[in-house]
Amino acid sequence: MCNFVSQNKKLFDELDSLIAALPETDESALIYVLKEAQGIFGYLPKEVQLYIAGKLSLSPAKVYGVVSFYSYFSTTPVGEHKINVCLGTACFVKGANAVLEEFEKQLGIKSGETTPDLKFTIECLRCVGACGLAPVVVVDGRVYSRVTPDDVTGIINDYKEVEMSC
């Protein structure tokens, strides 16, 4: 843990400042601190969870229990661009599985994984509530409707081009 903390000292300093500014530093602050820590680190590795447990005087099991319960929290690095493929009934019937397979093929990862360069993460959703637009893909909050496997290259390139222009 010490090595991770020393390698990420600036991030831990930012987390310390955030915690120090809280009116309460106990269990009532846990979800807020976890949310902010995930924003700082990009995910919640074991070292960050243990650190938060110590700072809030909570057991590591309590912190891990909250992290593992809420799907919002991630214990593994998440890509800069999050690709969510809806696999709800309407999307699935209209070919979302083939769209997912094309994303996996082109990015070289499976659903739930992140590319080695940390640029893309693929996840599946059960329903986004846009059945009339099926199949639906959501990338960083942007909704793509009636997506086909042929559209996947263009969608990925949209986000690669954004990277290159910055």
Rank of each mutant, 00 (worst) to 15 (best):
S17N: 15
D140I: 08
L58V: 02
I31Q: 15
V128H: 08
L87G: 00
F73M: 06
S68H: 13
G88A: 02
S57P: 00
K10Q: 15
R142K: 15
G129Q: 11
E123V: 06
N97M: 07
G141A: 12
F12S: 09
P23A: 05
A61R: 05
G65P: 06
V93F: 13
R126L: 12
T89L: 10
L118Q: 07
E27K: 12
A98H: 03
K9N: 05
L18H: 06
Q49V: 11
Y64E: 10
Y51H: 11
C91R: 05
E36S: 12
L118M: 10
L15R: 12
A134Y: 14
R126N: 09
L18K: 06
G112K: 01
L87E: 04
F120Y: 08
E104I: 02
P23M: 05
V48I: 04
A96G: 03
V136H: 03
D26S: 14
I31H: 14
C127I: 05
E24W: 01
S57F: 05
T76P: 00
G129L: 11
A53E: 08
P45L: 00
C124A: 12
K82R: 08
I40E: 11
R126E: 14
A21L: 00
E101F: 01
A37W: 07
G129W: 11
T121K: 06
L118P: 01
Y32Q: 04
A96Q: 10
L30D: 06
D117F: 10
A96D: 09
I40P: 12
T89W: 10
I83L: 08
V139K: 02
L58R: 00
A61L: 12
D16T: 09
G65Q: 08
E24Y: 15
E104Q: 10
V99W: 06
G54T: 09
E101S: 07
C91G: 01
I40M: 10
L44A: 07
Q106D: 04
T121I: 05
R142W: 01
G54N: 15
T115L: 08
C131H: 09
E27C: 01
G39L: 03
K35S: 15
G79E: 08
H81N: 15
F12G: 07
E36W: 03
Q38H: 14
G95V: 01
V137K: 04
E36C: 09
K55A: 09
G132N: 15
L30W: 10
V33E: 08
K94W: 12
A20P: 00
C124H: 06
F103P: 02
P77Y: 00
A20K: 13
G108F: 09
E24A: 11
D117H: 07
C86V: 05
Y51M: 13
K110L: 13
T115I: 11
A53F: 09
A96F: 06
Y43V: 08
S74H: 14
P23W: 00
F69E: 06
S59A: 02
G108N: 05
C127S: 08
T115W: 10
L30M: 09
K94F: 14
A53Y: 04
F12W: 06
E47L: 05
S71R: 13
H81C: 02
K46S: 04
T114S: 09
E36K: 14
K62V: 12
I40R: 15
P45I: 04
S74K: 14
C91I: 14
L125K: 09
